[in-house]
Simulated scan of single mutants.
Amino acid sequence: MQLLFPRHWQDYELIDSGDFQKLERFGKYTLIRPEPQAIWKKKLSDDEWKKQASAVFVRDSAKARKSSREDEGWTYSQKLNHRWPLKYRYKDMQLTMSLQFTSFGHVGVFPEQAENWDFIYDTVKAWPEPGKVLNLFAYTGGSSLAARAAGSEVTHVDAVKNMITWSNDNQQASGLKDIRWVVEDALKFVKREVKRGKQYNGIILDPPAYGRGPDGEKWVIEESLTELMELCSQLLAPRQAFLVLNMYSMGLSALVSANLVESFFQPDNMQFGEFYLPSTSGQRLPLGTFLRFTR
């Protein structure tokens, strides 16, 4: 197993973590957000955290559900723009993500995933033809943008319409176009593509632990992921292909991904392990497992 972290961020920085929180800089703003895995002590003082923070998020699910404010849960130390750009550069890939404060504490990017963006971009660029890439549970589209920037024909699937709108904003901000947007349950979409005999050169999966499709379809990762991976094995091209699988469910080892993938694929050059973010104060914050392979 490997431990990997993104090496090319300039607009993002994990400053410190501990006491179930993290202090992060996203472009021009520095934020304090909850972090359930940061059970250690902070390196910096509380006063230093407060001094640096532009905004603080405190999770209160019941209050957020009752509120009509999209940014419920945030307090601000100054007047801020509630949307702001975050840039990412790697080789000839130039991405711009439009960030915003949300009632669930996210801002629209998972910085550790930049390591996958580089992998996707390099893999597609090395092919004679850029092929077709499918991104499932695609969120705000960082991986979709990376594949499109490399020249691939990209299909981006997410069950939440607002995420598709956000992803399209990111596409435009990045100077890209022609990503195919699909608002649908991932498992339902893949079943239909298999029936149609479709194939993709790249498949990216970032499944949640639990979720609902646009028509109320139930997703539980332990119950549904095996079926989805079997179907993906029928969609993935036999050559000039890659697969990326991320999992954020606490308690599911990277070995789970490895055993699952080996049940349905014959992967070459398979990597699996954990992503983490190094902080400038010295800790390493674990942020989910990854698996990826090419063939």
Rank of each mutant, 00 (worst) to 15 (best):
S103N: 13
A173D: 05
I179C: 03
F119N: 00
I164M: 12
S103K: 13
K161F: 12
L145F: 13
T123N: 09
V160W: 01
K188L: 06
S144H: 11
G141C: 03
P85R: 03
T140F: 03
G105V: 15
F137A: 12
M163I: 00
D178P: 00
Y90R: 05
V160G: 04
F104E: 15
I179W: 02
A159E: 01
S103V: 07
D169R: 09
D122Q: 15
Y88T: 15
A114T: 06
T123C: 11
G151I: 10
Y139H: 12
G108Q: 03
P128R: 15
Q100E: 07
L95M: 10
E184Y: 00
A149E: 10
F189C: 07
N162V: 14
K91P: 12
G131N: 10
E184G: 00
Q100G: 11
V124S: 03
V154A: 01
D118A: 14
L136S: 03
F119A: 01
M163G: 10
V160A: 10
G131E: 09
W117L: 07
G131W: 12
D158R: 01
V183G: 00
Y88F: 14
Q113T: 05
L95I: 15
R83W: 08
N168F: 11
S174T: 10
K132C: 08
E129H: 01
M97T: 08
T155Q: 12
A138T: 05
E112G: 11
K161N: 09
W127M: 13
T123K: 07
D122I: 07
M163H: 13
A138M: 01
Q94H: 15
V107F: 08
K188I: 13
N170E: 01
W181I: 01
M93C: 07
L145R: 06
V133M: 09
F137Q: 13
I120S: 04
A149N: 04
L86I: 03
F110V: 04
V133W: 06
R180T: 13
D122V: 06
L86E: 02
K91G: 10
A146T: 06
A114N: 11
K91M: 11
K161Q: 15
N170G: 09
L176N: 08
V157F: 06
K91A: 14
V107R: 01
E153L: 11
Q172L: 09
Q171C: 13
I164P: 02
F119M: 05
W166Q: 04
D185P: 00
Y139M: 08
P130D: 09
W181H: 02
E184V: 01
V160K: 00
Y88H: 15
F101I: 04
F189K: 06
A149T: 09
I164C: 12
L176C: 06
L95T: 05
L136P: 08
F104S: 15
F104P: 10
T96E: 12
F101T: 02
E129V: 11
I120V: 12
W127E: 07
H156C: 08
I120M: 05
S98I: 14
A146F: 03
M163F: 08
S103A: 13
L187A: 09
T96V: 15
D185L: 04
L99C: 11
Y139V: 05
W166R: 10
W117A: 12
K91H: 15
S98V: 08
I164N: 10
D169P: 00
V107T: 14
F104L: 10
V109H: 03
E184F: 02
T123Y: 12
G141P: 01
G108I: 03
